[in-house]
Design a protein around this nucleic acid. Structure first.
Lengths: 163, 163
DNA sequence: TATTGTTATACTCTATAACTATA
DNA sequence: TATAGTTATAGAGTATAACAATA
């Protein structure tokens, strides 16, 4: 098997050699990603409180604004969530006047999502707040590093999603 | 190993230019991190099914093996979770014979976690499986890139945790 | 037969408060 | 007063199965 002593001299040891005795968990990319994800998501959620929308609302709103008339099923597919989980989110958003369900001509089963004027305004404001949030949250990384990080995440995502 | 040469004009555009019209969400590091985290965690959980332990059990087991006699509060602190959430996990682990709660001399409030022989064996086996899982899951990245990714995640974590 | 939206349901994970026994 | 472990509880978030209308 693997797993005898620590021999490599990579970024891991360098990055963490200062403070604590370097736990095994901290050597795992997945574990660190979990911790960072929790932190970034909390900050993200905080940023969206100004517009009183949840992270899930933001992503659905983004879809409906960027892709006019997109159907619920397609939103679910692209967000990687279940159709059934989308219903209550869209109910809330419709109640808040951010968007409306409208019939699709040619397929009477489907519901198309059309953002309202307020929906677009909220999205625009929230989007710029979110970009500021990312800028600030990842400010410990250089611009080049941020692009590198984003590119690596995308590649991993593709390899894991697409095969 | 794939994907050489993408340091000219932003890794983001290059990485995603092939298939879809590049949604706004896909430009966000946080969103991509969420998607990758979900994928890697599912794979992680699958790997651990061989030893019939959950991700949470694995992290607690890791703590107890790496830091003999660590207390529950300290585990919660290092894992970034609530003490109350730890109780049922440790109950399960004690029931499975992976570890035992033992009194701490000098502080009768505290409970120290001591892994059993089976706990150590399970951990050793699981740990090597987890390293294989990481090797495989992130195989789209080069060794150098993986170290870079890990280092960046650690730096972001530190900056956000306020260390 | 398959798909869209929907409902109902259950399960995981987490956050919170309160309690006890210690410190 | 503060801390360690515990209990109880509620809230997200998500997954699953089933159903009616439509394709």
């Amino acid at each position: 098997m693997t797993g005898d002593g620590e021999n490599s001299c990579g970024a891991a040891e360098l990055a963490a050699s200062a403070a604590e005795p370097m736990e095994k968990l901290d050597q795992l990319i997945g574990y660190n990603m979990k911790r960072v994800y929790i932190l970034v998501q909390n900050d993200f959620r905080q940023v969206l409180t100004d517009d009183d929308i949840s992270p899930r609302m933001f992503s659905v709103l983004s879809m409906s604004v960027e892709s006019h008339g997109i159907t619920q099923s397609e939103v679910a597919r692209q967000l990687g969530i279940e159709r059934s989980g989308l219903v209550s989110i869209i109910d809330d958003m419709e109640r808040r006047g951010l968007l409306r369900r409208m019939p699709v001509e040619g397929d009477r089963r489907a519901q198309a999502l059309h953002p309202s004027e307020e929906g677009r305004a909220v999205y625009k404001r929230a989007l710029s707040a979110v970009f500021e949030h990312e800028e600030r949250f990842f400010s410990v990384l250089s611009q080049q590093e941020r692009e590198l990080l984003l590119g690596m995440l995308m590649r991993v995502r593709r390899s894991a999603e697409g095969g």
